[in-house]
Amino acid sequence: MRSIELIVIGGSAGSLQVLLSLFPWIPAGFPVPLLLVLHRNSQFESALEDILASRTSLLVSEVEEKEVPQPGNVYLAPADYHVLIEHDGSFSLDNSEPVHFSRPSIDVSFKTAADFYGDRLVCMLLSGGNADGAEGLAYVKARGGITVVQDPVDAESPFMPRFALQITQPCHILTGARMGEFIRSLWPPRHA
């Protein structure tokens, strides 16, 4: 079994509840960093970091530019910046044009992560109301990464997962409630 080195979770409208239910499943000492790319309204100071931190013993922080992801830390894409994975695995921030009206864009993080991590990557796309993330997910899959889409029937805003399913066949389609268990199952890595 390959080892997973980064988990990227993308979500928009309706994804917060899934995230909150997922964190209690992730044990302390979890060896893989998580990057959360959520569409947020940059006009409003968001308490997201605090809300998430209250649900997990993992360290939750906003991405700092050129920071190297550390195992077991949860990184949040800052409002109004795209998060890219650089050639040395560090995060870089970019405030170029929004993609799918979104900045941060899920596609941008999925794709640049896939370029660096290849098959050592898990990307998960949750509930949301626009087309962001679908193209990125297909790109991740083509490079051998593990892709997961929230079951549209289960999603509060089914558009984003449904759109993704139209252009790519993900490795797993899961309900929000199963996502935490899935992440937990990645650890410890099973040996083939």
Partner: peptide, 10 residues
């Protein structure tokens, strides 16, 4: 320049 960012622009 940050490589990935530049590459994406190109």
């Amino acid at each position: 320049y940050s490589k990935t960012s530049l590459q994406r622009r190109v």
